[in-house]
Design a binder for these strands. Structure first.
Length: 631
RNA sequence: GCCGGAGUAGCUCAGCUGGAAGAGCAACCGCCUUGUAAGCGGUAGGUCGAGGGUUCGAGUCCCUCCUCCGGCUCCA
């Protein structure tokens, strides 16, 4: 038989030859260094037979940055971890141990809980295994045989995995440890040049909180120690970008124990907040949204009517008041629906676009709070568009255009990806209708060039939705914007309009938030820019540094002129050296610095950009420059 | 909410097996009168997250709670 190599040349092999055989046929070094066969973009174990005509690429230890090559290395490292843990903790049960984006984990059920400091001991055991050397043997087997094997060992999680496994069952053995595993794996442990256990966490079996909580050990592995060091260095760098550190450091916001999940915004933080709000207001107005304001607190009767009570009950903050109980609103939709329903509507009013960036309260689980990225006091840039079925497409297209505009403005497009949630099993409406609405969302997200994946069956029963995500500094994805088509709630809250046919109709409603939450969006921005905001967003745009006491008045006049022109300018008249004040401005990440002393005048200012570039310009030229930067 | 870790001055942290709470920076006061990333000296600053317990004695040991951090679940 023949296989096709990446350069399109063909390699003649005996029938049933494996990836390793193919590598050996090319050269002994390749065979030794091979870690994986890649075929049509998917990974295949070196030990598995190739098919006639298959296109293959052999990855080796030299492909040390390739995601698939790293995954096979880390997956094998996870098996070393399991072997080590089984040796050190008799009675432990093993669950699953996959490779993940920057490493791997393995889930265990320990007879006694373990502590973080024990990771060191486990890591030593792994190093011992590496020093001894391990090689992996693969064996295909039957489900019965596998269940017997793991059943004898009391590995009940493995037995359960066999029960629910699809396709053939395979086992990998290294030393005296055999694991149920689909593979692929390395040939032997030599390529694993650096391993580090990075953390300990609880994780529910099969991700379901009704199941037992297992102990998850996280780790990472690399083809070289240098790569591990570089990885740790990147993590350090990400920590420096962490908005929870930069926020207080840059005097933007802070949190208090007495109101967890609710930020206190400092004046400098509000400058950023207001910049977003200004943009939102301006753009909403331009695009035909009408700003409204609805109560922050409603009788729970409303939440029963809207349907939120059933799905959302545990997230409400409740306020008993006499006979009734009020709930702080976690969403604006019912209020907007009541506003719509407050009088008779005509089809001529549609589409009607209500916008409101109100404070919402959601009682999020304590353990999930995370700086500005997961709060209980949340401000959505919310809007509800009431429209006819025919208008849905144009409205959704418009929203994606808006999203594209925002992402461009903030330079965050590369952080974003989307999820399209499609029709669930118990859906309302015909397949034809769903074809149309899903198609609209898909086409719109594609037109914006935002990468997306389809979450089949994840849509609400009344319509598909698209959720927009962004990555924080360490690569965690957070849901930002969302666009949801709703054919259900309007009816529940009595929204109707009179159509051209003089009959009563229920409008569609599109719920949308584009920033998502202002808190979260600002959190992401802080990490994205590392605190060094672009000029138009910077809390302090220009800082004036008078050289001596005698220059304070003149520098103050420059500051006033800048402020008069609408810029956020500050005068640093502290009794500190120029060097010191420049350093402080750099640390505060102020984009423009103007030093003013004997050598300067309105016609010749000494300007320093953030980062140290220096030039001189007249005040008029500076104002002109800044106006461009702020646009 | 669950698992693991942490909480000492405004910030970053030290404080060993229980035996008199510390440093640097910041703040304040004074001196210096400043030229492109830290001038010098001094002063003040703490219910050691909260509550309870063990002990002659607790920052240190035990229990409960709160908050934060890494995950899990959930979610904008």
């Amino acid at each position: 038989m023949k296989v096709v190599l990446p350069d399109e040349s063909e390699l003649e092999l005996p029938a049933g030859a494996s990836g390793r055989d193919a590598a050996a046929a090319i050269g002994p070094r390749l065979a030794e260094q091979a870690v994986l066969v890649r075929s049509d973009g998917s990974s295949q174990d070196l030990r598995l037979p190739l098919e006639d005509g298959q296109h293959i690429q052999i990855l080796t230890t030299r492909d040390k940055d390739d995601p698939d090559a790293l995954a096979v290395l880390r997956h094998s490292a996870a098996h070393l971890l399991a072997e080590a843990v089984r040796r050190l903790y008799p009675g432990v049960k093993i669950a699953i141990g996959p490779a993940i984006e920057h490493g791997f984990y393995y889930d265990f059920e320990f007879p006694e809980p373990i502590r973080e400091e024990e990771l060191e001991r486990i890591e030593e055991e792994i190093r011992r295994e590496l020093a001894e050397g391990r090689s992996w043997e693969r064996r295909d087997t039957s489900a019965e045989e596998a269940k017997r094997l793991f059943g004898e060992q009391g590995e009940r999680y493995k037995v359960e995995l066999v029960d629910t496994a699809e396709g053939p069952i395979s086992l990998y053995t290294q030393g005296d440890f055999t694991d149920l595993c689909r593979g692929p794996h390395l040939q032997d442990s030599k390529p694993i040049q650096a391993v580090k256990l990075t953390g300990l966490a609880g994780a529910y079996w099969r991700g379901d909180e009704r199941n037992a909580q297992l102990t998850r050990i996280y780790g990472t592995a690399f083809y070289s120690q240098g790569d591990l060091d570089a990885h740790l260095e990147r993590l350090e760098d990400a920590k420096r970008r962490d908005h929870r550190r930069l926020g207080p450091q840059l005097d933007l916001f802070h949190f208090e124990e007495v109101s967890p999940g609710a930020a206190l915004w400092h004046p400098k933080g509000m400058a950023i907040w207001n910049a977003l709000e200004d943009l939102r207001r301006r753009e909403n107005e331009r695009r035909g949204y009408l700003e409204v304001k609805t109560p922050i607190m409603w009788d729970t009767a409303l939440w029963h009517r809207s349907g939120h009570w059933d799905k959302y009950r545990e997230n409400f903050f409740l306020i008993p008041h006499g006979e009734t109980t009020y709930g702080l609103k976690p969403m604006n939709c019912p209020g907007h629906m009541l506003l719509f329903a407050s009088r008779l509507r005509s089809y001529r009013e549609l589409p009607l676009r209500y916008a409101e960036a109100a404070a919402l309260h959601r009682d999020e689980p304590t353990g999930s709070l995370h700086g500005l990225l997961r709060v209980r006091h949340i401000t959505q840039d919310d809007a509800h568009v009431f429209c006819t079925e025919e208008q849905v497409q144009a409205e959704i297209d418009e929203m994606f255009d808006y999203v594209g505009f925002l992402y461009e403005r903030f330079g965050v497009r590369e952080l974003a990806h989307a999820e399209l949630a499609t029709r669930p099993e118990n859906k309302l409406g015909s397949n034809e209708q769903w074809d149309v609405t899903e198609g609209i969302l898909r086409a719109a997200v594609e037109r914006q060039g935002i990468p997306y994946r389809v979450m089949a069956g994840e849509g609400a029963f009344y319509g598909p939705k698209i959720d927009l995500f962004m990555d924080d500094a360490v690569g965690r994805a957070w849901q930002m914007g969302t666009i949801q088509l709703d054919g259900q709630q309007p009816a529940r809250l009595g929204c109707t309009y009179v159509g051209a046919d003089n009959a009563e109709h229920t409008p569609y409603v599109i719920h949308r938030a584009l920033f998502g939450s202002l808190e979260r969006f600002i959190g992401i921005l802080i990490e994205h820019y590392g605190g060094a905001f672009p000029f138009w967003l910077a809390p302090v745009q220009v800082r004036l540094v008078p050289v001596g006491e005698g220059h304070r008045a003149a520098a103050g006049e420059i500051r006033d002129a800048l402020a008069e022109a609408g810029f956020r300018a500050e005068l640093d008249e502290r009794d500190e050296t120029v060097g010191r004040r420049i350093r402080d401005a750099e640390l505060a990440k102020v984009p423009k610095l103007v030093v003013f002393g004997d050598r300067e005048s309105r016609d010749s200012l000494a300007i320093r950009d953030r980062g140290g570039r220096r030039y001189s310009a007249s005040l008029d030229d500076l104002l002109e420059d800044l106006a461009k930067l702020a646009a």
